[in-house]
């Protein structure tokens, strides 16, 4: 048995070697292969290091800050081939919680038809349909019990819904009064959620991100290799994407109007660095 397996393996490796430069396979929704999207958190021109008080980061407003935690949901991944064919990853396999503190969580691993992809689309957050699903459908990263409410929890119990993007850290610019952090810890907390509401329309911070892969390398998805779309997620852009804001003015943003300003910056966080094929 082992021998047969070895033969098969060797044969397939040989075939692989021959196939590599072959033409794009026909687009077949049944012919699935692995693809990963890597969410590599960075801060401006630097790598992400937690609580680096010795050399803090500096935002566009000139405020020095450190980061203690970053977590966000990525969902509803969709890919488009170079010739315009779209594939949407089935919903049940399309929810990912990217946790800055857990390197392994940075990959969103999906199965898509073999093909050459030049466009990636995903949602930062949890779509409204999934946000209102029965409790037994909320498993895996969507389990409301995950992470506890003080720690890594990404669920609001009092106002049913997920926190899409949770970003916390410290900055000396934060005052110790009620306009800053009354506990004196000089903490900033951005818990951005809001899917539009069950019945009445409420704030909607679901953001769809589209990344063009043409310039930095299309994803060639084949069964015999692992294609990885490597994205940079620049957390600095939270403060100066479409709108620049100051940590001192907005040290805590949760379920409130200003959250929509921050969520509009989200699209600026993502850039395609390269693709490993």
């Amino acid at each position: 048995m082992k021998k047969i397996l070895t033969i098969i393996t060797i044969t397939s490796i040989l075939f692989t070697a021959c196939k590599k430069d072959n033409a794009t396979p026909d687009f077949d929704e049944q012919n699935l292969a692995s693809l990963s999207v890597e969410f590599d958190n960075i801060v401006g021109g630097r790598t992400l290091t937690f609580d680096n008080t010795a050399v803090p980061y500096t935002n566009a407003t000139g405020e020095k800050f450190t980061i203690s935690s970053i977590q966000y949901f990525i969902s509803n991944i969709q890919l488009t081939t170079t010739d315009g064919k779209q594939f949407t990853v089935p919903q049940d396999s399309s929810y990912f919680l990217i946790k800055g503190a857990d390197r392994a969580s940075r990959f969103a691993k999906v199965k898509v038809p073999e093909g050459d992809y030049s466009k990636l689309t995903f949602v930062l957050g949890v779509d409204s349909l999934r946000s209102t699903m029965p409790v037994d459908k909320r498993t895996g990263v969507l389990d409301p019990a995950l992470g506890g409410h003080d720690g890594g929890g990404m669920y609001w119990g009092w106002n049913s819904g997920y926190i899409f993007f949770k970003f916390e850290g410290n900055s000396e610019v934060i005052t110790n009064d009620q306009f800053g952090d009354p506990t004196g810890k000089k903490q900033f907390k951005y818990h951005i959620g809001g899917f539009g509401g069950y019945s009445a329309p409420t704030i909607n911070n679901i953001r769809t991100i589209t990344v063009d892969l043409t310039n930095a390398g299309i994803a060639k998805v084949r069964k015999d290799r692992q294609s990885n779309i490597h994205l940079f997620v620049d957390l600095m852009k939270v403060f100066n994407g479409t709108t620049t804001f100051s940590i001192k003015t907005y040290p805590t943003v949760m379920f409130g109007e200003f959250s929509t300003v921050i969520s509009k910056n989200f699209k600026d966080l993502f850039t395609h660095d390269h693709t490993e094929n």
Binding site: T132, V135, G157, Y198
Partner: peptide, 20 residues
């Protein structure tokens, strides 16, 4: 549910008093 709304599915209700 709740005096001030926010919860619209009984199954999700207990999370609030447990975690508050």
């Amino acid at each position: 549910f709740m005096w001030g709304g926010g919860i619209y599915d009984l199954d999700l209700f207990p999370i609030s008093p447990i975690t508050t």
